[in-house]
């Protein structure tokens, strides 16, 4: 029996790992997106007292490796009596970490906006919340899409770190298979192919968003 046949027989493990990776990725990236938008809303001046601490928090997250945040949540939090299992610690860390990066990306794009827009919106009687939701957020999301695409790929790659805290995901599947059957080369080639596929699909989706954005006139402001 060749090595590839062994892998084919064990395909359920790969599929389970792949689905698990996609679940972690999907859930944490959605949460990160919401966190990023929330932080942007605060930085927009909705809560002036939170602004400085938030800036410090975002900047310090950007100076830390992802894995050390996972350690902090997984090994550090039990000191305060909060015990997360590996899966939730991983998803939580991904969401917070990439939420901060999203916030930073959004903030960078926000700074390029002409101030006249906000003044015009205020003159028409928009309050901060409505203006943020209807005017600022859609433009920011559409204009920062290449950066968001990059960040999504980074987030996908960061899910592999979770194998270190024993989350059962795609890399873990390859690792355990290569341990059982001593076929590391083939197992990891399949897994790398899976990651590649997902990031290719994401790139295509981002490109399609570009078309939508051009059609709706987001680009020619």
């Amino acid at each position: 029996m060749s090595n590839w046949e062994i892998l084919w027989l064990e395909r359920d493990q790969f599929i389970a790992g792949f689905i698990s990776t996609l679940e972690i990725f999907g859930l944490s990236i959605s949460a990160a997106f919401v966190i990023g938008c929330g932080m942007l809303y605060i930085l927009e001046g909705a809560r002036p007292r939170l602004e400085v601490p938030l800036r410090i928090f975002v900047d310090s997250m950007r100076m830390l490796p992802f894995l050390i945040l996972v350690y902090l949540l997984y090994y550090g939090l039990p000191s305060f009596g909060i015990r997360l299992n590996a899966w939730w610690a991983g998803v939580g860390a991904l969401a917070v970490y990439h939420g901060c990066y999203f916030a930073e990306i959004f903030r960078g794009v926000r700074q390029t906006f002409p101030p006249g827009q906000v003044e015009a919106a205020r003159a028409y009687g928009f309050n901060t919340g409505k203006m943020f939701l209807r005017l600022i957020l859609p433009q920011i999301i559409m204009r920062s899409r290449p950066l968001i695409g990059n960040q999504l790929i980074y987030a996908l790659k960061d899910t592999a770190f979770l194998v270190i805290i024993t989350v059962r995901e795609l890399t873990a599947a390859a690792n355990s298979l290569s341990g059982t059957y001593f076929i590391p080369t083939e197992a990891f080639i399949v897994v790398i192919g899976c990651y590649w596929l997902v990031s290719m699909i994401m790139e295509i989706i981002i490109k399609q968003c570009g078309r939508f954005s051009a059609k709706r006139g987001f680009d020619n402001v």
Partner: peptide, 23 residues
């Protein structure tokens, strides 16, 4: 370049370390 950008570092490290003896 496309592959190396999409491959997680953990996966790449494991791949290199485990499959080098095979070669």
């Amino acid at each position: 370049i496309s592959l190396a950008r999409a491959t997680p570092l953990v996966t790449l490290t494991l791949f290199i370390f485990l499959s080098a003896p095979n070669f």
